[in-house]
């Protein structure tokens, strides 16, 4: 099976009429698309980043257990979708740089600083970009949820919610409607007063995330198998932690983000 990922030494099948004197064309395509979808939602005191665990190439499924959301340290998570090799490499690089920061400055990096750093990492490869769309999440210095979204070459923006990947076009309008309450109005105002978004409780958002993925699985072939859901929440207050170990654990993370990961199945019919 010829992979889309053509290596330079792989020769094209010889043409029937080719002779040695004729010019031969070689091509090398360094990129491939591995499907999948991720989404991030920032709340008042939490962040949820979720992704499916299918990794595919064309119509073939490479694995059903590929994680797309990475713990990059200091209470920050990075979701990547696109070409999984580039995504994983990017996550490794970001994790390494966040660790360097901690060792050099003896403090944790903030999410907004990490966001700028990721932008620079991406732009550094402006002419041979990482073929992936990253989504960075964590709690900012005020403990408020932050999602940063990027394009391939480092343009970025802080947003409340965003879906990236193969089924982004399916999920995005659903999130507009259910998270940002677009096209919804306060009952009885005859469509004059739009409903104000914000302050959704985390369990409600998790339900919406699950619904979004269930819909995407139903209608997109590159999405499916498992759901990886990562929450970043505030830790319990310091007084509540008498245990020394627990305080140490607290110190390991930055603006106070605690990561929890939930793995679940996605529907299979």
């Amino acid at each position: 099976m010829a992979s889309q990922y053509m290596l330079p030494h792989v020769q094209q099948p010889p043409s029937f009429h080719s002779t040695a004197s004729q010019p031969r064309q070689h091509q090398w395509s360094p990129y491939t698309e591995n499907g999948g979808v991720i989404l991030g939602i920032a709340g008042k005191d939490y962040v949820i980043i979720a992704g499916d665990t299918r990794s595919s190439e064309g119509y073939s499924i490479n694995t059903r257990t590929a994680r797309k959301i990475f713990d990059v340290g200091s209470g920050i998570v990075l979701g990547v979708v696109g070409m999984s090799a580039d995504g994983e490499e990017l996550a490794r690089k970001v994790a390494r740089r966040i660790d360097d920061y901690k060792r050099n400055h003896d403090k944790h990096i903030t999410v907004n600083a990490a966001a700028v750093m990721l932008s620079r990492i991406l732009y550094a490869k402006r002419f041979f970009p990482y073929y992936c769309q990253p989504l960075l999440g964590g709690l900012d210095e005020d403990g408020v949820g932050a999602i940063y979204t990027y394009d391939y070459v480092g343009s970025f923006e802080r947003e409340a919610s965003r879906a990236f990947g193969a089924a982004a076009s399916l999920i995005t309008p659903f999130l507009d409607n259910q998270i940002n309450l677009k096209n919804q109005f306060v009952p009885g105002t005859n469509g004059d007063e739009p409903r104000k978004p914000g302050d959704l409780p985390m369990d409600r958002v998790e339900k919406i995330v699950k619904d979004a993925f269930t819909s995407a699985v139903e209608r997109h072939i590159e999405v499916g198998d498992g759901l990886q859901l990562v929450r970043v929440t505030r830790p319990p207050p310091r007084e509540a932690m008498e245990d020394e170990e627990e305080v140490d654990e607290r110190e390991k993370t930055a603006g106070g983000g605690v990561l929890t990961e939930v793995m679940s199945e996605l529907k299979k019919d």
């Binding site: 089924a167 409607n177 677009k182 096209n183 919804q184 979004a212 269930t214 995407a216 139903e218």
Partner: peptide, 28 residues
């Protein structure tokens, strides 16, 4: 496809169906 799959449920009454269709269409 994405929004309808998320909002639709079986046996909607006419007024609820109107709301579902309208929300699906407008947000898309």
């Amino acid at each position: 496809f994405g929004v309808a799959e998320g909002l639709w449920e079986p046996d909607l009454e006419p007024e609820d169906l109107f709301e579902t269709v309208s929300q699906t269409l407008l947000n898309s």
